[in-house]
Amino acid sequence: MKKSIEEIQKEIISEFSDLTDWEEKFQYLIELGEELPAYPEEKRTESYLVPGCQSRVWVCPSLENGELQFYADSDTALTKGLIAILIRVFSGHSPKEIANASLEFIDAIGLSKFLSISRRNGLSSMVNMLQNFAKNSGSEI
């Protein structure tokens, strides 16, 4: 059975609670980013760039069978890990679920506390872009 956005967030919170310090947490985020599938070169265009990010982050949505799938890449390892964790939470859910999702895990694992202001702003921009894709993806909302 498919996991809800809330269940996925709980899994992430649990995974991060096992890590003892921020060096381990950042390393884990980097590892998550390394697991992203290859991003198509033809989608590395301005129209797929996340605005408001210090790093370059590309996100491409795809609506498949009423569910959004997201593909992404970044030019920095930590940012790639941040987008990877957001994709894990959102991909495979309906636009309505994504648009209405509340992301408690960001505070629960300490990202809003331990990321620099510019990275927090970038993370917020990524969340906004993913949820805007959901809001603009059709009649389900």
Rank of each mutant, 00 (worst) to 15 (best):
K2W: 10
I5H: 00
I8R: 14
Q9H: 01
E15D: 14
S17K: 08
D18Q: 13
L19H: 01
T20Q: 04
E23N: 07
E23Y: 07
E23T: 08
E24V: 07
E24Q: 14
K25V: 02
Q27F: 07
L29V: 11
I30L: 15
I30W: 13
E31V: 12
E31R: 14
E34L: 11
E35C: 13
E35V: 02
L36A: 15
L36S: 14
P37K: 12
P37N: 13
P37S: 13
A38F: 14
R44W: 04
T45R: 14
E46M: 08
L49C: 10
V50C: 11
V50S: 01
V50W: 01
P51H: 14
C53K: 05
R56K: 11
R56Y: 09
W58E: 04
V59G: 10
L63K: 06
L63V: 04
N65R: 13
E67H: 12
E67I: 02
Y71L: 04
A72C: 13
A72P: 11
L78E: 07
T79A: 09
K80G: 07
L82W: 01
A84Y: 02
I85D: 00
L86R: 00
I87C: 15
F90S: 07
F90V: 06
S94F: 02
K96P: 01
A99P: 01
A101P: 00
A101Y: 02
S102C: 12
S102D: 14
E104Q: 10
I106F: 04
I106K: 04
D107M: 15
I109C: 08
K113H: 11
L115Y: 07
R120I: 05
R120H: 05
L123K: 01
S124M: 07
S125A: 12
M126T: 03
V127M: 04
N128A: 06
M129G: 03
M129F: 08
L130G: 00
Q131C: 04
N132V: 06
F133K: 02
F133V: 02
K135A: 15
S137F: 10
I141H: 12
I141P: 01
